[in-house]
Amino acid sequence: MTAFLLKRFMQSLVLLVIVSIIGFIVLNLIPGGPMAQYGLDPGMTQQDIARLEEQLGLNRPLWVQYFDWAWRLLQGDWGTSFRDGNPVLTVIGRHIFATLLLMGSSTVIAVAIGTWIGIRGATHRYSAFDYVATVGAMIALSIPTFWFGLIGIYVFALELGWLPAGNMYTIGDGSILNYLHHLIMPSVVLALVHIAIWSRFMRSSTLDAMNQEFVKTARAKGVSERRVIMKHVVGNALLPMITLAGVQLPSILTGALVTETVFTWPGMGRLFLDSLGYSDYPVVMGLLMFSAILTIAGNLIADIVVALVDPRIRLA
């Protein structure tokens, strides 16, 4: 196990270095750069822009900028946002709660409902329920979240007035109930897509498990159908879900770009879009490294958990 972890750790470091180099180059290849937004500002002359570029160190050769950034990162300094002057980790810290709240609740909804739909669809294959679930999943996957969100706002906020039209809470009211009230629509809209993904995976994974020899053995032994499903099928069907959960973990912390925009949710997804829009290099690079680390960690955790719960798998 220790040897495995050490090997994975070294692999991850190499991967992070590669990701950071590619990210840095791609970011700098985008035409314009952080000062382009001032190009049309009347009264900001090329001299003003050149001065700012020099002050921010943007006129140095790219490799110098990269090594400077990487060296500071190694010392724990993630850099400072061009946009609001705060350290990158502070900026990320300020947005992570909103995302965790939204993604956390939508993931709980999605996993619970998706797993149930998947199992029921598999055990009642080709039933009316299965067809409705399959078609429903296809619809949920193919309709843009943006549209879903706007329709939800139109119906439940503007027409019926049951739910707020977005935002994380009403300004001046920080009660838990208020947060929950605001959480309903975005988490459900976001969960719709995830339910579709989870239910499809769970369905095929359950079907796989149902065709295994040990299931036939259990049935042959006269174990009740309910017990076969609950004890033998579901447990095994959930194994691939752990890997899926590992892959999905980073998205819980990096946020939902579209949903956060439609529902005015101050999370990481919007931070990423805004930082990209303003070419706020330190924050974009910080978010890139952050999600790369999470992706690597998510996969590693999934591998370990699978090894722990599945006696057939040994880590080496």
Partner: peptide, 10 residues
């Protein structure tokens, strides 16, 4: 959405 929140009174 800015316009929608103006409609909704937010």
């Amino acid at each position: 959405v800015l316009y929608t929140q103006f409609q909704s009174g937010d």
